[in-house]
Write a protein that binds this DNA or RNA. Structure first.
Lengths: 231, 231
DNA sequence: GGCCTTTGTCACGCGACTGTCACATCGGGC
DNA sequence: GCCCGATGTGACAGTCGCGTGACAAAGGCC
């Protein structure tokens, strides 16, 4: 799991710096913006996993920004935590009505901020879906992280597991090495494309004892495909 | 036993205040939310032991919220009492079908509410009857806070006890360190994730003399799992 | 106050995993 | 059959995740 990206939208530099410092020390990747216009630029090029948005901003209120983002299909699932100096109930209501996922009133302790960030990220992360995926004698249970064929357990390394998981949710379709790197390794990592070959090899080796390595098919010149119909 | 946490989800502030006041006076810890979105935030960071959910809510009906929560593995065991202004049988049916554990029609007396809360908590918590959990030679008696394997008593510290208790009620499933911190330590504490490793270690050491440390399994890159099938 | 238990953090070390390379092998076009 | 690019395969070194013991701070108990 790579570091989560957090975007801070806050016009007062001291506060921004302090928060950024704390977050970086906690292992997050931090981007900063001091108004809504800059925020949009950062959203576009950084794709943050979470945003901290100040209530009062020079060009547009933070609430307005939040409301707009939550209406944008590309951004609606970026969780937002509002920061407000006012403790009034009124603002709390406004923040959450505007679509923020949580809010905090200044001053707040770094510890509390980190806790809320974790909570919000944790909530956003798990996509609700079927836990057990089956395909041609193969069975993958994502909640217990087990792969099996009949009664036989199949041991996989983390990357091979993710690779197989991706294939089992995207069968019968060819993926280039670049696409696999994107989807399995993560968009911003850079590794040699041939690395994919090696992990394909490792996955096949793990499936071989069950005779299921035939599911991982090479499409010469294009990439790989996961299918039970013979190539 | 620390004070039970109750989350009130109700959009009408007067009612919310009144109920909260009554519950606090009865010794409960109370959190409030006025819509579903806020409710989710509070669930994540407070981990309530019980929820009171209004039938009509601004963003999503309480019934919808209930149904969603009961389908979420992380929340399914939080008991829910629905509050409704309509006395029709229809609602009662709908509420219970949606997964609520009980329901009350407004207006209700504080006394009645407290009684139902106690009843639901008793039923959910291992207080009334089902307070012994067994799993593969391990036996955990929650009422006497004892853990044993056969005739052998196993001594555990408080945190290790809670950790084991959580595992025994959620077997065969991988939990990240973050999730464990959430569920065993409590949603709003912030400690290093590696602290989990240390307590896992302590739990394993305690289980080792009985040869049961194999139940606590590491899933490299993901977290930990409690299972008797070999890794 | 002293003693003991519990708890969170750290540093060290090992082993598993990962990315890369070099070489073997394959498959298609001529 | 030959050539050449694409893919399979084994080996290797660096990295990273995790286990482990130690330790200091905090709290309960006498």
């Amino acid at each position: 799991m790579s570091a989560k990206r957090i975007l801070i939208v806050e016009d007062e530099k001291p506060i921004r710096d302090m928060v950024a410092f704390g977050l970086r020390r906690a292992g997050y990747e931090v981007a900063e913006a001091e108004d809504c216009r800059e925020a949009r630029a950062r959203i576009a090029d950084q794709r943050p996993d979470l945003m901290l948005v100040d209530w009062m901003l020079p060009d547009m209120s933070g609430l307005e920004l939040t409301r707009t983002l939550k209406r944008d299909r590309d951004c609606e699932d970026i969780p937002i935590i509002m920061l407000t100096a006012r403790a009034e109930e009124q603002d709390k209501v406004g923040g959450l009505e505007g679509g923020a996922d949580d809010y905090m009133t200044k001053p707040f302790s770094p510890r509390e901020l980190l806790a809320r960030i974790q909570a919000v990220l944790r909530r956003a992360a798990p996509g609700g879906g079927e836990d057990v995926i089956e395909f041609d004698r193969l069975r993958l249970d994502d909640s217990s992280h087990r792969v099996s064929c009949g009664e036989e357990e199949i041991a996989l390394g983390p990357t091979e597991y993710r690779l197989l998981h991706f294939f089992m949710t995207h069968t019968e379709r060819v993926f280039t090495r670049g696409q696999l790197l994107d989807r399995v390794w993560g968009g911003n990592t850079y590794v040699e494309e041939r690395t994919v070959d090696v992990h394909i090899r490792r996955l096949r080796k793990a499936l071989e004892p069950s005779g299921l390595d035939r599911l991982v098919q090479t499409v010469r010149g294009s990439g790989y495909r996961f299918s039970n119909r013979d190539a």
